[in-house]
Amino acid sequence: MESAAHRWDARSKITAVVGLSISIIAASHWLQAAAAGLVILILLVLSCISWRYYLSNLHLLLILAAITSLLQLLVVPGRVIYTLAGVTLTWEGLLAGSWLLFRITGVLLLAAWLTFTTKPGELTAGLERLLAPLQFIRFPVQELVMIMTLSLRFLPLLAEEAQQIQRAQLIRGVNWSKGSLKQKGRYVVAFIVPLLRLSLQRAEDLAEAMENRGYQAGITRTRLYAQPLSRSDWVLIAVTGIVLMAQLL
């Protein structure tokens, strides 16, 4: 579904994600964190994407964040809440753990929001325009963005190749769940070497395909997504700016 968040320009969305991420990480007072959290919450609601979808895509990372926060809870010294089998929970640990969980969750949700509401092409085009001033110091912005585009293209391709190698190994009797550590090490090598070889082959194929369609490093390419920023884009940038400024107060 095309929501308001989907319609925003990638530049304003990238700015918002970077700005709000800095805000939430740098926040030292609960009011500052709450302001950033509230804006993130509004952005998520405006995306019209269900919470279930966000959670299903982030659940592994969120579990990892929860484990990291739990470690904070156990290792930070302070006023004791409870002691069990030599492990002490402290108020300071609880606070530090909660802060960490809040910050990681905020950043993960922002990253998910950006990728769920922006097409890959729009994302890279937005980044290209944001980084355009760097071209004055001869920074290869176009090439960098092309590398990003190709990396995004490569991910499903690599996953497919990895699956194929795994299937081929399975047919030849490789069982990852059995065998000694040394044997498993051998399996990993037997998996990584053909994957690397195939990746290089795919990279060559991709370079050929690009050249076949007229790509050359340094040529002037037309930007596909290059509409001017709308009023709502400016509102999003302004709100991000206000939240960011609030961290300095």
Binding site: G121, L150, P156, E160, E208, M210, R213
Partner: peptide, 19 residues
């Protein structure tokens, strides 16, 4: 599969004309 450059059909078809 070796000839796709973008992650979206429309963007991929546009790649040549962009160049």
């Amino acid at each position: 599969d070796h000839q796709f450059i973008s992650n979206l059909v429309a963007d991929d078809v546009a790649f040549g004309p962009q160049n």
